[in-house]
Amino acid sequence: MKNEITRDVERVVLALDVNGEARQLLVAVHKTLLEVLREDLQLTGTKHGCELGECGTCTVLIDGRPELSCLSLPIQLQGRAITTVEGMASGSELHPLQTAFAELGAAQCGYCTPGILLSARALLEENARPSRDEIREALAGNLCRCTGYTKILQAIELAAERMR
């Protein structure tokens, strides 16, 4: 597949709600949410591992539901609420999931961590007392190569307990 030069593409004004802040910006119509978050809004906490929807690394919340930002087009998200890892803490107080991940060593290289934190947050908001298998099911789309998943499961369980 040949790449095409995209200098004169159509640009649109986007109005997005990102981490509770109303943002307006002018971006090329074909830009993905991942690109807009990282490049136009400098929210580089959202990472990417494939940009093809295969690894779950770029997961963000759209209206509270985990979505792959590399497959989402912001022009379809006008006015929707987007949450990234930068929006998890309240002020300087970490979200219980962030605290539990830090305490239990659930983040090694930390690259998959933002996506996993957001998937886990969506799960816990829907199900305050998930079984280990329910956690596995909810996170099956998020790959991690460092931890062997064990400490992540323990951290989510600890956070769930503290949040109840």
Partner: peptide
Amino acid sequence: LAKVDAAAKVTGRAIY
């Protein structure tokens, strides 16, 4: 103990 860079990793602050 938690890793010294744990907070940076769980908040998205770590710069890759």
